[in-house]
Nucleic acid binder design. Structure first.
Lengths: 325, 325
DNA sequence: TAAGATTGCTTAAACGATTAATCGAGGGGG
DNA sequence: CCCCCTCGATTAATCGTTTAAGCAATCTTA
């Protein structure tokens, strides 16, 4: 491989001059700069990031800790972050904590050992990794005190609830996934906030089982708001086995707008995160923190967007009306 | 941060001795080894990977190029690879080529610039990245001459087809996603191989549109084999709008056993990749190639597994039989 | 007991880049 | 004519680690 020394001897100058010419620092005559750049190009010279990292103390690598890559939402975040990092000439070292808080701690440790310049952490539910030895950005939910940037999960829940309320539903079920998750709790709280005293609300959680759900429907509920698309799909599948159909018998909503939300029948009304914006804000914040060395203070939330599809209907409406947007 | 020099001066020995003591190389008395290890531990010493990389010429980092992280299958591969890499004290630098062949080339270039010791590439459909400047493992499909390790996509197609044949279906539809994809073509070819002359087979591709599908069913087809679960979900959703129901009116199969396959109703009969084994073989092969510096020769395929669920039924069977396994 | 082998440590170079300090040459001003 | 400044380059140190080579001191063996 061509290195700076090879170019230097080729051109009969010192390595310092080559370095200066290539980085644009120091004082080098413009002809010399051109000639050196040309030669570097011809040789296909690529600076050794190891050498540079050793000297500068910066690796140019960010660590990304994900709670569970198999959850379809996280790869989308990873994808956007990786794109932003590319633009900024940074690498992303990925670590998956696979649903396990201990793994998360170890993953952070491994990344720190590798000398990452900063960390992006989407925490395991119920954990609070907080700030680390390097600048850290936490992507979680507004109610997490460590949170740096996140979707407005509560706002998303409110949006969905207001949509359901506007459709005239007055007896509704809120179905959460896991109480341990702050994100899920915020979503549920947001749903409550979107309703008022005139509504009858039944709050259920996934582990309560599907039977309670069926009971609540038999008791008169006409809408179910879930805190995840996958949960909505499961509900939909379970209900149809009991002869209860979406949307003619009951309205159903998801959360996150995962890829299969449009592949279902009926297509799922849900609420979408602006993953791109979140990734953008997160990485910019991290880079600023790395450069200025002052910790991030305020936390930012990004509005969610209601995606109306066919799984929600006006109360008592027949099924021949297809709501699409 | 504590470095090797700090430990050396603390203990009144040379840095070489410290290095030897910590790596277990060279000749150091066992008492000295113990004392140095102890001190290193007390100081929380972490070797600088930049320093080590510079000296050794190895970064300890593998590059992973994924065609599209939003496809739920790839994060599962990424997750498994990342686990294996952790065990081997390697880092994984991830790059997403986002469905674009040019992005793929750039992603590979970026990873090489970062000094990765090897590359794992799941190629963009229709592309052949081949071997690069560093040892490279390609995860694609058996018919790709560059392929190193992959699921036996053809075998999986054959399994599914044999299952459908065993259920007595004689007029079947094969529905592919994208002809450009070698993986998809192998799957379709495998499906053909699982049938025989007595079967009437209609081969359709996604872009042909769903209408042809409905026509074929009206003409007497009783089973549809798709080359992806997402495609199956779309088909299922579309057919139910035409009053055609799975499995009582028609049997339906997917491919890959994605997370939502069990959330659908009926649960989807599909074929699963042993992602863990593929990841294991791929990374082992890559590491061996890096160490021995000889290129991988033979290509390995990993058998797929038939997952029988409720979306396939014996021809002319009524729906009250629930096939589960 | 002297030559040779072994042990335990040190010296020093090397990896590839960055950068502060330095230095000679040429130009301009007093 | 001398001093000073600027330009364009060089010198050398530095980042943290590894490792071949070297060198006393001790041990072995004849």
């Amino acid at each position: 491989m061509a290195n700076i020394k090879k170019i230097a001897t080729d051109m009969g100058v010192s390595v310092a001059t080559v370095s200066n010419a290539l980085t644009g620092k120091g004082r080098v005559s413009s002809q010399m700069v051109d000639r050196i750049r040309q030669r570097a190009n011809d040789l296909g010279y690529r600076p050794s990031l190891a050498g540079r990292a050793l000297r500068s103390g910066q690796s140019g690598i960010l660590g990304l800790v994900m709670p569970d890559l198999t959850n379809p939402l996280f790869p989308r975040i990873a994808q956007n972050l990786s794109m932003m990092a590319d633009d900024r000439q940074l690498g992303i070292l990925i670590a998956d904590s696979r649903g396990n808080p201990d793994e998360q701690t170890q993953a952070i440790e491994r990344l720190l050992d590798r000398g990452v310049d900063g960390l992006l952490i989407v925490p395991q539910k119920g954990t609070a990794p907080g700030q680390q030895r390097v600048p850290t950005v936490i992507i979680n939910t507004a109610s997490d005190p460590d949170n740096t940037v996140s979707a407005d999960h509560a706002g998303g829940g409110k949006l969905i609830a207001e949509h359901i309320a506007a459709l005239g539903h007055s007896d509704v079920i809120i179905l959460g996934g896991d109480r341990v998750s702050e994100v899920q709790r915020d979503r549920v709280n947001g749903m409550h906030a979107g309703l008022n005293r005139s509504h009858k609300v039944t709050e259920l959680w996934d582990k309560d089982g599907m039977d309670q759900l069926v009971c609540a429907i038999k008791d008169g509920a006409t809408a179910i708001m879930t805190t995840s698309d996958l949960l909505a799909l499961r509900v939909h599948s379970h209900l149809s086995q009991h002869g209860i159909f979406v949307p003619q018998d009951i309205s159903l909503t998801g959360f996150d707008d995962l890829p299969f939300a449009t592949a279902m029948h009926p297509q799922l009304t849900t609420v979408a995160q602006d993953v791109e914006k979140i990734a953008h804000l997160a990485i910019d914040r991290l880079i600023r923190t790395i450069q200025n060395d002052d910790p991030p203070v305020e936390t930012t939330t990004v509005a969610m967007r209601l995606v109306m599809r066919a799984s929600t209907l006006i109360k008592n409406e027949t099924a021949n009306l297809e709501t699409t947007q």
